[in-house]
Amino acid sequence: MKIYEYAIRRIFLLIFVIFGVTIITFIFTRVLLNPLAAYITDKTPPDAVIAIIQAHGFDRPIYEQYFIYLKDLVTLDWGWSNVGHMALTDAIRTFFPATVELTILAIIITVLIGVPLGIISALKNNKWQDHASRIFSLVGISIPVFWLGLSLQYAFTYWTRSIGLPFLPSTGRVDPLLLIQNPVQGWTGMLMLDSFLQGNFVITLDVFKHLILPAITLAFLNVGILTRLTRSSMLEVIRQDYITMAKAYGLPRRVIIYKYALKNAMIPVITSVGLIFGGMLGGAIITESIFSYPGMGWLSYRAIVFNDSNTILAYVVVVAIIFVSVNLLVDIIYAWLDPRIKY
């Protein structure tokens, strides 16, 4: 089978999975919970409610309602977000870029620490470097994210300030006063990128300062996962015959590792970086809620607190679609990188 045939088959599967996802969210929003909640607020006049019921088909049979729900999804008529105080699609457009920005920084940290640590750990198998990095990654996967976030906040904003050292901001995305003095036009919604492109480096630096602690918090668990994965993948590769062969040829160790071993060892690592990225986009809820970082995770956290199921389920749909698309992309890259793979 050719690679594009594989890609086409996977895209069909993706469409099927997205239908499945919408069935689940349909059951949640329109069957188990009150479907009207998304479209009315306290201020909706009673006679308008009937029109809304008819417009969205809440009086129709269930199977018809599903298609109406799909139509609403596609036409971006997602209803109102009570915690966002705006239409849901607007809320996602406003808050999602912040999450993407945080996730990108976190994934950079994860890769920059996790991959080298895993490689060192594998090359120094059973030496002290290996033990140290294994313990570090074990602690990484065992640490509760919320506790890590709160502790970082305590250490780097409260404690460093109390002994007179420079400190990092504990909450928010940017200093609002600074933003008023140096306005940034919203091109992509990613404040750091926008301000950088517009040459507004004061804001870039401030946003970066706000991002450090949340990004470390979000990255920490994944550093542990990635280190362990890189280590085991590298160990597997350097035990293979072709590496022994290269050694027997008398090639220098550096060439063997960087030219022969690393390429093959990195294939599963790339796949899992894709998975981690998708997971981070969805898993940022805890991190964002601790640092009051105004992204989608923070919005969903507030939605949980104020029982706004509509916002949460919209977020679930968005994250699921992104997650499966990233997975698809990663699988195709995987197949393209590794010609040994049979589909």
Binding site: T25, L281, G282, I285, S309, L313, F323
Partner: peptide, 21 residues
């Protein structure tokens, strides 16, 4: 296919939605 669909949600997100419901 059911498993595929459930796999489409990143872990905590689905658990969150379910316990919310």
């Amino acid at each position: 296919r059911i498993v595929d669909i459930l796999f489409a949600f990143p872990g905590l997100i689905l658990a969150m939605a379910i316990s919310m419901v």
